[in-house]
Amino acid sequence: MRKIIKSCGLHCIKIHDLGVSFDDKEVLKDINLHIHCGTITALIGRNGAGKSTLIRAIIGEIPHTGEISFRNTEDGKIRDLKMGYVPQSINIEKNTPLDVYDLITSFKYKSPVVFRSKKIEEEIKEALTEFDAADLIHESIGTLSGGQLQRVLLSMAVMDEPNLLLLDEPVSGIDKNGMDLFYEKISKLRDHHDLAVILVSHDLDYVLKYADNVVLMDKTVLSEGSATKVYNSPEFKEVFGEIYNA
């Protein structure tokens, strides 16, 4: 991502009556959300509440009912939504013969990954620089630490300037220091780019500190709003108990 744009707050991603069923089992229903650019929305809830399923439905991997639209509130036009995604983990073994260049090229470029291109390499390096990962470009991905891999995946997710960045439990396998760094980076992205972030998180402390909007889920939206509001709701206490008094 090259341009540094101040987020305008005028774009809006609208999820209307979204539902997902696997065979006959209803996994998500009546999900209604408005997500504005320049904000971080955290999805929280217990395991199996459908947080990852919602992300996969938004991406379009699994079929859903209802609508997802992307609207520019200034002129009211509906535009195509560009999405970036960072998964929970990726399928790699120690000896997977891919370096960071190969990884990003395979997802983002047409030119066959076996023919190295100087131009692509420069572009990838630039994208990695934003997350202090430029020196990893020729590292084999099987040897990267959790935090390094996270930074590489983030660079890839934002390199073609998405309107919406989806992060699925992105902090597993990373130490506290790495977590702080990660959330700092996400906040910077929100502040300096024209994008909205949806983040699946298990860490309520980080959500409290960084999220602008919190969505508590269990098959549907139980409670939504600022972290303080959601953490004080009766639904939250039902799901997580009385641990939080924000």
Binding site: I59, N91, T105, S106, P112, L166
Partner: peptide, 19 residues
């Protein structure tokens, strides 16, 4: 060669490839 990049991407993560 034509499908190499897509195949590689899919082997790493299907959802990510779809996105």
């Amino acid at each position: 060669l034509y499908f190499l990049n897509s195949l590689t991407a899919m082997s790493i993560h299907e959802t990510l490839a779809k996105s």
